[in-house]
Design a protein around this nucleic acid. Structure first.
Lengths: 194, 194
DNA sequence: GACCATACGGAATTGACGTTCCGCTTGTCA
DNA sequence: TGACAAGCGGAACGTCAATTCCGTATGGTC
């Protein structure tokens, strides 16, 4: 398995790869997965061939970026875990997640189009899953989060947020605030189906 | 402007048009906007050319179907207006809307990808807009709906629902239940931003 | 039943993109 | 500084799906 020897790359190659990743981040964040490989290449000031030398397919490039995002998510979850107040911890995590999505159209699209990709990703990053689970159960134990939400409801909820280009005045902040109120433990809560 | 004289169509043309619309409904509902014109033609037992005789572009065909859906939405809103209990009226409308979306992948996609198309559509159907507004203000007057939601939050909310192919056990019903609890007037509500 | 405008079918065209290929360039190392 | 592998650019290619075109078929009308 350790046959994947890291042969030293040429300096320009390393530089280009970085430029490509950075360009891809921008382009896909702005235009979503519709963005074209040529756009990425142009922004990176590189030929398309070079992009393909570093990432065998568009899918691979997107996957690389997605992986980054999930890593970030996992970090945010970790940080939230350190927050004393349990509701606050939970809320902060959702807030960060939402704002991450709001800033990256490709991410929202991926999540919106196939939320179960989220599941796959989550499985591969069990640090993320574990952290979410802890955030949820802790908040529930403290009686601040309704008892009938499940950790895996969280990704589902987030999929529905941060839709780009909504009607004027429609912001994910409002939507999130509503959802958070729905998640808070309250006497008026109606039991969730299923 | 009344130059749009309705010349009587040939019988087979009328029959075909109907077949095309019906086929399109099925195909787009199942496969979303990715579905191909050839699929529509095949299911309608008609050549592609015929599809294009009736609808100049794929976009036009989709728009026709969307219009239908919005008409249905408006009807549902009308019916909800007749419900005595004001919370019930509001909830019923959202429920129907969500289930409509759940049954039509193309509809969800359209709403998810460009919620502001929703706005345009809503403007053209001011019966829908008006009904939504009434449902909201009535429920607020009765003190059962939080006072800081706006009528136009409703479409935004619905855009986030009915995502197809979610993680196992993730249903729009759960999501809707959470949102509804968040919309209910309650002492624990945190004021919405904006 | 003959005529012809209307309508049809589906092969061909077009355009958009992802991906490949190959001759040229440039780091790296002796 | 010269050799050469690693890396590059971007034109060319292949595919896939929307759209067009045109020869043929058919409903309506006399």
């Amino acid at each position: 398995m350790s046959i994947t020897e890291e042969r030293p790359q040429r300096a320009d190659a390393r530089r280009n790869r970085e430029a490509i990743v950075s360009a891809a981040r921008q382009v896909f964040a702005r235009h979503g997965r519709e963005a074209q490989m040529d756009d990425v290449a142009r922004r990176a000031k590189v030929g398309v061939g070079t992009v393909y030398r570093h990432f065998p397919t568009k899918e691979a490039l997107l996957a690389g970026l997605a992986e980054d995002r999930f890593r970030q998510l996992a970090e945010h979850a970790q940080e939230a875990l350190a927050i004393e107040d349990r509701w606050d911890a939970f809320e902060t995590f959702l807030q960060r997640w939402a704002s991450l999505q709001a800033s990256d159209r490709a991410l929202s699209q991926v999540l919106a189009e196939s939320p179960n990709l989220m599941c796959v990703a989550a499985c591969e990053r069990d640090d993320l899953t574990a952290a979410m689970r802890t955030l949820v159960t802790r908040a529930q134990a403290a009686g601040v989060l309704r008892a009938d939400v499940r950790a895996m409801d969280v990704p589902m909820i987030m999929c529905g947020l941060a839709r780009e280009g909504g009607p004027p005045g429609a912001s994910w902040e409002r939507m999130l605030a509503i959802v958070l109120d729905g998640l808070r433990a309250a006497a008026s809560n109606v039991a969730l189906p299923d």
